[in-house]
Write a protein that binds this DNA or RNA. Sequence first.
DNA 1: TAGCATATACGAGACCGATTAGTTTCGTTT
DNA 2: AAACGAAACTAATCGGTCTCGTATATGCTA
Lengths: 203, 203
Amino acid sequence: MTTSAPPRPGRVLDPAKRAAILEGARAVFMREGFAQGSMDAVAAEAGVGKQTIYRHFRSKEALVEALVEAMCAPEVVRPPTRSLPSGQRLRELLLTFVTGVASPDSVRLYRAIVAEADRMPGLGRLFWEAGPRQVRAAIAQLWAEEHDTATAPVVAEQLVQLALGDAYQELVLGTGSPKREVFERQIDAALALLEVASRRHRR
Amino acid sequence: MTTSAPPRPGRVLDPAKRAAILEGARAVFMREGFAQGSMDAVAAEAGVGKQTIYRHFRSKEALVEALVEAMCAPEVVRPPTRSLPSGQRLRELLLTFVTGVASPDSVRLYRAIVAEADRMPGLGRLFWEAGPRQVRAAIAQLWAEEHDTATAPVVAEQLVQLALGDAYQELVLGTGSPKREVFERQIDAALALLEVASRRHRR
DNA sequence: TAGCATATACGAGACCGATTAGTTTCGTTT
DNA sequence: AAACGAAACTAATCGGTCTCGTATATGCTA
């Protein structure tokens, strides 16, 4: 019964422009932060009129949300190939996760989200659901396959914390640039710790 | 040989005013963040003319640096009373540390420092040295007394990470307000984990 | 299938209102 | 003589809107 809205002729919003705007926003906001980065800067970086941004995004806040969503999306974790020896798969998963999270862009994204945590609480949840939560789920599943199902969720949490460790804090605080080997050491220590405890728990 | 500068009469900068300004800055910046908090707001909060702030601090940046330094300083950790049973002292230390770090003001300070990590890299180091580093040292010493000296530093790192855990991430990201019991559970699990491994390591 | 009309996207840039770091002024206090 | 409170003032930034001239896709008509 609802009459469909009359077809509205004219040009249509160009998806390529939207992509260019998001790319410009990524460059600007990861360089200067969400608060400091200006819409004029985004427009210039994207090679686009400012009004075009507002045709594609309602406001700066909407643009930021779309950007965070886009930057979190590819963080989906796929467990490593099943061909690896059982014990190595978990190590591999942790290593790829940590190297991803330790990349400059990922650190800047985390910083920017933390910075606006109380002004835009939605960002924090968006980030958590798209990134850290899925990582923990993947790790828990792998642990459940190879060890205990009951303790898998809490073990996954602990593994993530230990794998990131102080080295990640250095990155976030900008006080150092730990090498890959540091993370590898932390991961190996974490796995050793948890597996010892698991064996003991299983009597 | 250098002629002493001519005596300069007049009033002297009032230290009480400086303290009031820092207190006002703490209130404002912890409420609104370093970027959003305005100097006018600090002046009002401190009950002080804006120019008085600029007589005591060269710029907003200088005020922020002084504030961070002041807020980090008192975070010195004193190990708990020796009267406690040996096994409980470590738990007590971790608990007071975590509850301190989980306080709203501490979380906001951490957020603010992370937010400006690349614009003001000195803040990150200042914070790390004054807070987390000392906490780790205190924990390591306690662990060395009761267990192994060689592994104490890395164990302290792991204990801190596990004690904070995902609950602290929720606080930082603003996605939740975990109760004290959550942190207690994380601490107990961490201690159990590390002590099991320690006993095994000692053969 | 070709062509015309139309509504909209687009770039550029002026413009508005609000906010803010920092300065200046003035009368008062120490 | 300089600190202090109060408040006006300056210069700059920024989110968002508006206008203008141009480009382009869509729908209707032939």
